[in-house]
């Protein structure tokens, strides 16, 4: 078994599972505001994954951009249009 490429594989598998769950949830939830918030959680988990893959600069950028600014932009748009989605 060759798990040891990463620092802690249990952590890795946990984060990957949660990232995939967040991605599915963000696309299935009907309320667009919750969709934006789940997108923020997705970005933050992705940032953890990248820290663990030793890409600290990328993780820093993602924490500031993905979890911060783009969530606010999505929220701003979601509040300007009809909040409920059909699918």
């Amino acid at each position: 078994m060759n798990w040891d490429a990463s620092l802690l594989w249990q952590f890795d598998v946990l984060i990957i599972t949660m990232v995939i769950l967040c991605a599915v949830a963000a696309l299935t939830v009907r309320d667009l505001v919750s969709c934006a918030i789940i997108g923020g959680a997705y970005s933050f988990l992705m940032c953890l994954l990248w820290t663990e893959m030793l890409a600290v600069d990328v993780a820093f950028t993602e924490a500031a951009v993905g979890a911060g600014v783009s969530t606010v932009l999505l929220l701003g748009t979601a509040l300007h249009i009809k909040r409920k989605s059909k699918d």
């Binding site: 600069d57 993780a59 820093f60 950028t61 951009v65 911060g68």
Partner: peptide, 21 residues
């Protein structure tokens, strides 16, 4: 250390967004 222009710019922009919020 990790950081640089992109990150600093985003954090500065986020501080203004926080004020506007």
């Amino acid at each position: 250390s990790p950081g640089g222009g992109f990150q600093a710019g985003v954090i500065l922009g986020a501080s203004f967004i926080l004020l506007a919020l």
